[in-house]
Every structure is written in structure tokens, then in C-alpha cells.
Nucleic acid binder design. Structure first.
Lengths: 79, 79
DNA sequence: AAAATATGTCACATATACTTGACTTATATT
DNA sequence: AATATAAGTCAAGTATATGTGACATATTTT
């Protein structure tokens, strides 16, 4: 999928650890890590919760996939 | 969850049926219907695909849950 | 350099997003 | 008023998001 660098940056700006963010959002640390790693595809409700904690919009954190070195998407919903 | 009136409106503006939108996005008609009905919580990837087809941003279509007559959320990720 | 904390990853379990097929109720169209 | 298309819903199946525990590797702190 493509690592989510924006979450990591926003989290860093608030000096929060993955664990702290995960707790604030109400999910497990591993899930938070997997999302930053791009290992999966969170639900919109979870994305909204992350945005709220980090004080960012959906577009800022989850808009337009990083297509810098695009790694052959398993493309279920065609782009 | 709360019906997504915005998708319905954007779809209507393009004179698309649920079936047509579902096909354009690459999901089943029933899933599209369930999302508009607020019967579940799509993944961000699917949301992006819907946005792309409808020419709207995540914030426009999926930002901030409708809290007009808020029906006691099952609140997994606290709001 | 040892101890502590943060991050990455794996395997297995559970909840739920999404599919498919079928049926019903609206809303056109003729 | 009959026929067609659109929309809503249900049950049963499959795929995957998320949880939990455990362990490995970075990175920071002492």
C-alpha cells in the first residue's frame, strides 16, 4: 500500500509515540503501526478518529495515496 | 451510523444510479447501498475510489459525521 | 554498555467489510 | 395498469481489518 508518512509526521509534531496515539484513538499499538507501515487499509471511522486526535483533516492525512515509488498496488478498487 | 446524504447528492448531480456508481468504483450495488444507508463503515481505499469517481474530496464526502439527529452511536472509537 | 523505551513483525483469533443471489418496495416509462 | 428500472433489505459466504501475545531490532537514556 504505501507508508503513511503524514501520520508519522503529525504524530511527531505532537511528540506522541505510536502507543500513545493508539491509546488516544482506542486501537492497539500494532494496528497503529500497521497503518503507518501501510500494511492495511483502515476504515473511515478509524481515520476520522486519528484525524481528530492529530488535529488534521482527512484530506491532510489520508488524501491521495503517496505515489512516489508506487510498489505495484494489489489494486482492488482501480485507480 | 448515519446515512451519507452527501454521496447520494453528488451521485444525483452526476445523474448516476447506485448501480452505476458501484460499477464505476468496482464494488457491488448492495455495498454501495449499504454505505449510503450508513449500514457500515467503508475502508479509506474505497472512500478514495468513491471520491475519485464523484469528483469530490474525502472531507467533502466523508468528513465529520452528520450529527443532526445523532442516533446514539455504537461508538467504538470515541468521538 | 547496560537498561529502558519505541518500533517492526509474526501467528493466531475475532469482528466486520464486502460479495452474491434473491426478494420486496418504490419510482419511472409505456 | 402493466412493465421496467432503481432502491432497500436479508441470509449466507469470503476476505480482511483489528486484537492479543510474544519476540526482535532500533533508538534513547542512564
Amino acid at each position: 500500500m504505501g507508508r503513511n508518512v503524514k501520520i508519522k509526521a503529525a504524530r511527531g509534531a505532537l511528540d506522541m509515540t505510536q502507543k500513545a496515539l493508539a491509546e488516544a484513538v482506542g486501537i492497539s499499538r500494532q494496528t497503529m503501526n500497521a497503518i503507518e507501515q501501510g500494511d492495511y487499509n483502515p476504515t473511515i471511522k478509524l481515520c476520522r478518529a486519528i484525524c481528530k486526535v492529530l488535529g488534521k483533516s482527512l484530506d491532510e492525512l489520508f488524501g491521495e495515496e503517496e505515489n512516489e515509488h508506487e510498489k505495484q498496488e494489489s489494486g482492488k478498487y482501480a485507480g
